[in-house]
């Protein structure tokens, strides 16, 4: 890999890092407004390090659900990261501790950057460069967003309760480019609202997850 290629990969990684850092600002703010402490908010970005799951956990807690309902939703949303392993396992080192370290960085952004590059050394460099840039700026953004929100008297006055649905929508939109996911999204929204008055907070999400899993398995069986 020559130095021009290397520089190009680093530049792309920084670009993605800065974009996700900006979006971490809103995670830090939403998490703090939901009632998580500064340390809990930062722990999620360091240890969970997968955006949609983090937003889901704090979103469920902020809406009055239990942290366990939030944790279950976060784990279900994290299931897609397991599928990225299929595409990355040929690129990454499979030796013990290196695999354990690489696993923490297996997210949407690093997968997209790694599979866009060939041959393997470039792909592997793109994975680590993107992972390092996103991890650094994601955690920095989280800290700044959380600290700024701590300084506010009443987050609800600033419309912070309207921020999580917009964040979920922005995460959902890129996945709706075909008719089937759009139909599933609409159906899931309706089912969740129909269940909501009758079950504990957060449970409508788990009902939706079970139904979509059954739907997926039945559909692929045909």
């Amino acid at each position: 890999m020559d130095s021009t290629t290397r520089r190009g990969i680093v530049r792309d990684a920084l670009g993605i890092g800065i974009a996700t850092g900006a979006y971490a600002l809103s995670f830090g703010a939403i998490s703090t407004a939901a009632g998580l402490s500064l340390l809990q908010t930062c722990a999620l970005s360091v240890l969970m390090f997968t955006g949609a799951s983090q937003f889901a956990l704090v979103g469920v807690v902020g809406a009055g659900g239990s942290v366990w309902a939030g944790a279950a939703t976060a784990a279900l949303l994290g299931s897609r990261n397991a599928l990225y392993g299929v595409r990355l396992s040929s690129v990454l080192d499979r030796a013990g501790w290196k695999r354990a370290a690489a696993a923490h960085f297996v997210i949407d952004e690093t997968t997209a950057m790694a599979i866009a590059r060939e041959p393997v050394p470039e792909s592997r460099f793109a994975f680590w460069a993107t992972g390092a840039a996103v991890f650094t700026l994601w955690n920095l953004g989280t800290l700044v967003g959380a600290l700024a929100t701590h300084a506010l008297p009443d987050p609800k006055v600033l419309g912070f309760d309207a921020a999580p649905p917009a964040a979920f929508l922005a995460l959902l939109a890129p996945r709706l480019r075909a008719r089937e996911p759009l139909a599933i999204a609409l159906g899931a929204g309706v089912v969740a609202l129909v269940c909501l008055p009758f079950v504990p907070a957060g449970v409508p999400l788990l009902i939706v997850a079970v139904l979509v899993a059954i739907f997926g398995i039945v559909r692929s069986g045909r």
Partner: peptide
């Protein structure tokens, strides 16, 4: 399909 359904349910 799971993230699509869950994110939509969260929005709703």
């Amino acid at each position: 399909l799971v993230p699509v359904a869950l994110l939509a349910a969260l929005v709703a």
